[in-house]
Design a protein around this nucleic acid. Structure first.
Length: 412
RNA sequence: GUGCCCAUAGCUCAGUCGGUUAGAGCGCCUGGUUGUGGUCCAGGAGGUCACCGGUUCAAAUCCGGUUGGGCACCCCA
């Protein structure tokens, strides 16, 4: 620790940044409430196996991005890289299957050991929703609709594009995977080194490679639409139809896949071109297999997560800070009088900044610095008359107000 | 983990071909104004030129390394 600094990939959220952050979070929570999602919070660390088992042994998150440490008792714990596994674990731990369906909203920090870049941090924050217990496309439609509403409420929907794909059900995916592996294995010699690695880890990702050699081979690869079984086709058609009915535009992206193993059927992303390489601001999908692979009852689920930092970077329309009144006492008698006065004003709902020290000039500077809309001057003259001088900081206009009427005069 | 770019005042940045005491704007402090902030005027403080080493008569400037940061790959929110 040569010089005191924040850990790589972490950042301090000082008041202005934090207020933007909170605006995104509160807006999303509010919108989710409209859809009857209830807020939950799960621990920010879990037993490592909660993530290792569910995210897929070969996923990037599990193989190289987890913050894992040994607890004093010897348990292996991990800071959560995402929250769906935690919600699923809480569902199982709490025996909540009796209460299905459940709709949850969450918000909080996530941790991934990645190399930081624009829109990518090691500690970042997500908002998200999960719907548990609804097997049909109605849930997918509502979940995506909720995401669209959040973007609308933030005023940034127009900066994004909804991309949609189906990963099919387990049967379709297994059949397709087999076809893909067969195809690419026959032409393995033509693939890039990275491409061969993907063939082992996640053949689906080969279709998404940016390497020209891989692209050339991918051109003739089997198409997923030929391997989707009727059930998967119908399901996806149902989702698309619902979005059409709601007038939510989307583009089909067959290359849209999910890095985490437990996804199936619907996969979607609201992406933007305005944030450089890290364009996904809200992304999610269906995870019907997750809870049963964790040892819980077979329970369908679908949800999304949104990156608060990324959403905040896109958002420009933030609410104004609430007005603050600076109470400026002049002289010892006024300082004594200011204490209960500030107390009474605060109890009646006025935001009051009472400087801790300084003469009139110093306190006026302080009032200006904090952006006070109004300054209330209280000196010997005023006390003698039972009034305070109320100064509008923007115009400089001043008027005298009886002290017992201050609360009403200053109410926002 | 790999690649490219960057590091000079609190902040944003100039700094020529290597050459005297390293500059600007903003911010900060003091005064003009002892019951008035902001605006205006005058003045002032503030630098291990990231760090370590090398080349040179001479390094903020050239070279190597280290640390830190940014962007991209990868992956994703």
């Amino acid at each position: 620790m040569a010089k005191l600094r924040a850990v790589r990939g972490t950042q301090d959220l000082l008041p202005e940044a934090w207020e933007r952050h909170r605006h995104v979070e509160e807006t999303a929570r509010h919108v989710a409430g409209r859809f009857n999602y209830r807020s939950v919070a799960t621990p920010i660390f879990e037993f490592t196996e909660v993530f290792a088992r569910t995210l897929g042994e070969t996923s990037d998150v599990v193989t190289k991005e987890m913050y894992t440490f040994a607890d004093k008792g010897g348990d292996s714990l991990t800071l959560r890289p995402e929250n769906t596994a935690g919600v699923a674990r809480a569902f199982i731990s709490g025996n909540l299957q009796q209460q299905l369906p459940l709709k949850y909203f969450y918000s909080g920090p996530m941790f991934r050991h990645e190399r930081p870049q624009k829109g990518r941090l090691r500690q970042f924050h997500q908002i998200g929703i999960e719907v548990l217990g609804i097997a049909g496309p109605a849930a997918d439609i509502e979940v995506i609709q909720t995401g669209a509403h959040v973007l609308d409420a933030l005023g940034i929907r127009g900066l994004t594009r909804l991309e949609l794909n189906t990963l099919g059900d387990a049967e379709s995916r297994a059949a397709y995977r087999e076809a893909l592996v067969g195809y690419f294995t026959r032409r393995e010699a033509e693939l890039s080194e990275e491409g061969r690695s993907r063939l082992q880890r996640n053949p689906l990702r080969l279709l998404d490679s940016k390497d020209e050699r891989d692209k050339a081979v991918s051109g003739d690869a089997p198409r997923y639409e030929d391997y989707l079984n009727p059930l998967s086709v119908d399901f996806f058609a149902g989702v698309c139809e619902g979005l059409d009915v709601l007038g939510i535009p989307y583009v089909l992206n067959p290359r849209l896949v999910r890095g985490l193993d437990y996804y199936g059927h619907t996969a979607f992303e609201f992406t933007t071109d305005a944030l450089g390489a890290q364009g996904a601001v809200i992304a999610g999908g269906r995870y019907d297999g997750l809870i049963s692979t964790m040892g819980g009852p077979r329970t369908p689920g679908i949800g999304w997560a949104g990156g608060i930092e990324r959403l905040a970077m896109l958002t420009t329309d933030y609410p104004e800070a609430p007005p603050v009144v600076s109470l400026v006492p002049v002289g010892p008698a006024a300082e004594k009088r200011a204490l209960p006065l500030a107390d009474a004003l605060r109890r009646s709902g006025v935001n009051v900044d009472l400087g801790f020290s300084g003469n009139l000039k110093r306190r006026m500077q302080q009032a200006n610095r904090i952006g006070a809309r109004t300054a209330v001057l209280l000196g010997d003259d005023e006390i003698a008359k039972g009034v305070a001088t109320v100064r509008d900081m923007a115009s400089g206009e001043q008027r005298e107000v009886p002290i017992d009427r201050l609360a009403a005069a200053l109410a926002p």
